[in-house]
Each structure stands twice: as structure tokens, then as C-alpha cells.
Amino acid sequence: MRYIIIGAGAVGGSIGGRLAEAEQDVVLVARGAHHEALRDHGLRLVTPDGTRVHKLPVVERPEELDLSPDDVLLLSVKTQDSTAALDAWAAQPVAGGGTAGELLPLVCAQNGVESERLALRRFRRVYAMCVWLPATYVDPGEIIAGGTPYTGMLHIGRYPAGADETARRIAAGLEQGKLLSPVAPDAMRWKYAKLLANLANAIEALTGPVSGDGAREILRRALAEGRSVLTAAGIGFASQEEAAEVRGDKVTLDPSGRGGGSSWQSLSRGTGTIETDYLNGEIALLGRLHDVPTPVNDTLQRVAGAFAREHRPAGSMTVAELTALVDGRRD
């Protein structure tokens, strides 16, 4: 089984590096300066148990790679980049006949819950993966993964539900590389729990670490909206208590091993896009569909999107300013 990591950023690079350490067959897919750094110098993976450089095959486009029936496509781009990536890979030929969309398993190792639906339009065999993996990608070629003693926990199952031998084979490969990977027939239930946790990402990206009463109050209100919306939509999700019990002390964050979260990293790299449309925006969407007001998540989605488009620095808004916007004030 060869793992093709489509999007070798914080999550994809961490998974690819740990798989490589376990002597699994890995190909990285990256763009621009990150691609050049990986190609020329290798993947520098910094973890609490040391720093390693992995010289792995790296490509920028699917046309550069010959696909085989034993390949697994692991999609770890941000959701706003999913459609382009899925379109690029689905039609690629596989040795022996057929296309990637017809034959190969595609695993959505991403935040949010939209990519699985996008993938299922193009791929017959789609797997959901809930990613609990604290990692940072800011500098080209370097990934900092701060989870210890395991780098991450990756629940995997068929989409929309179920489990099969392919999921078990993928999980077994991951678990050889300090990555816990429970096979979960209800993987989307875990992804919706992660969606709630990721509602904090926009607050962190805009104002810095979510600490202090003001930031925590915004988060409390965003989470309350999220839970109300999911309940109204009849969507199940694992509780915070259940998630904490499952993770236990298996994946804890080394304080020196991570910067900000994924949305903070997007602003820090000046990508011009941010995944908030598929995090807070997912709550806003469901709220409109089920007639549940979501003013806090609406505001977080709108303001974070403006920050990305305008290339404003991560953490450059005060909590007081954000609170005023959430409350509809113009102070």
C-alpha cells in the first residue's frame, strides 16, 4: 500500500513523515516554495522525540505520478482547495485500466465535514478521517508536530458510514508510525465533534490564543450555537467528555511543539484564503437551513474571511474589537 499525501502541510506532512519513519511507501504532493523545499532538502519533521529529515518522492501535479491499484489517496488540503484537488486527481489513469475516481480509496484527512460530499461526487470509495493532530506548518519544508506520546489520533471509516478491510489496512499502516487510528463506522460523528472544537480557530486567528474571559465568552457562545444547530439538524456528535476519554493522555501537546492552529497558520503564511467558511460557516449554513440564529459564527466567518483576503496579520484584532462586532456594535 502506497500513501499519496495530497497536501503535505501540517497534517499531511506529519502523517507522511511518521509513515516514512515506519518504512511505509509515501509520496508527498505540494505546491510552490513548499514543493521546492521538500524536493531539494527533504521533509524536516520536528517532534518531541527529535528532528528527522525525510527525503521522499514529491510531486506538484498528479500527471507526474503513475498510479497503481494499491495506492491510497490521502487528501489533506484545506477544504477551500478540495474541489480543485479532487478534480485534478479523479480522472488520473490507474495502471491496468480505470481511473483514480473509479478504483482508488480517497481519505479526507481534513477539518470540516464538506470534503467527503465533494469527494463522493468524484470518487466511489471515500473515507472520512477525524484528525486530532496538533501540528504547525509556516516555513517551507518544515513541519512541527507537537503531539506526544503519539503524534495524533485519526478515526477512520467509510463515508457516509461503515468500515471495511481497506479502512483497517490504512489504519494498521498509520499505527506503525506513532499515529493512533481507530476504525470507526461512525467516523462522521467524530468529525462533527471536531467541527465544534474548530469553531475556536477563527477567534485564535483574529485575536491570538483563546485565553481570558472575553475570548472564552465568544467561544462559549459560538459553541452553544453549534450544538443547537447540530441538534436541530438531527446530527449526532461525540461529546467533549467522550472525546477526552478516548484521547486520554495518548495525544498531549508538548508546549514547545506548536504555534497557532490551522486558521492562524493560513493568515501567518498570507495564503489569501482561510477555512472558516467550512467551520463557522458550516454552522451558519445549517442554522439557515434549520431556522436557528447563529450571529456569533456568522460574524467570525465574515471577519476571518476579510482578514484572509486583505492579508491582515494573525492576532491583530483585540478581543474587545471582536466582541463589539459579535454584539453588532460599532465602537
Rank of each mutant, 00 (worst) to 15 (best):
S14N: 04
R117K: 12
V107F: 15
V107C: 07
D164A: 11
F123L: 13
Y159K: 13
A171D: 14
M317R: 02
A100P: 13
G328D: 09
S266F: 08
P209N: 06
P209K: 10
L206H: 09
T151Y: 14
R39C: 02
M153C: 13
L104F: 08
A167W: 10
R220S: 14
L223Y: 10
L322S: 08
G212W: 01
T294Y: 00
M188Q: 15
F307E: 05
P313A: 08
G212C: 09
S115L: 06
T51C: 11
R220V: 10
M129L: 06
A222M: 01
K55A: 12
L86T: 03
T271N: 02
G328Y: 06
P48Y: 07
V113Y: 07
D49E: 15
V319R: 04
R169H: 14
F123D: 14
S266I: 05
V107D: 10
V94Y: 00
R330Q: 14
P93H: 02
P48K: 06
K178W: 14
L199N: 06
L28I: 02
L179D: 12
G50R: 11
G7H: 01
L106F: 00
T323G: 13
P105F: 07
R169M: 13
T252C: 04
V77M: 09
A232S: 06
A308W: 09
D87Q: 05
V303Y: 05
G12A: 00
A95H: 09
L253K: 00
H290V: 02
T273S: 02
G261T: 00
R302T: 07
Y150N: 15
G248C: 05
D25S: 15
R124V: 05
C108N: 08
T294G: 07
R330W: 11
V26F: 00
I15Q: 04
D291N: 13
M129W: 01
R216G: 06
D291M: 04
K178T: 11
R329H: 14
D327H: 07
R52A: 11
E282D: 09
T83V: 11
G13R: 00
V246K: 14
E321I: 01
R269W: 07
A306E: 13
E165F: 12
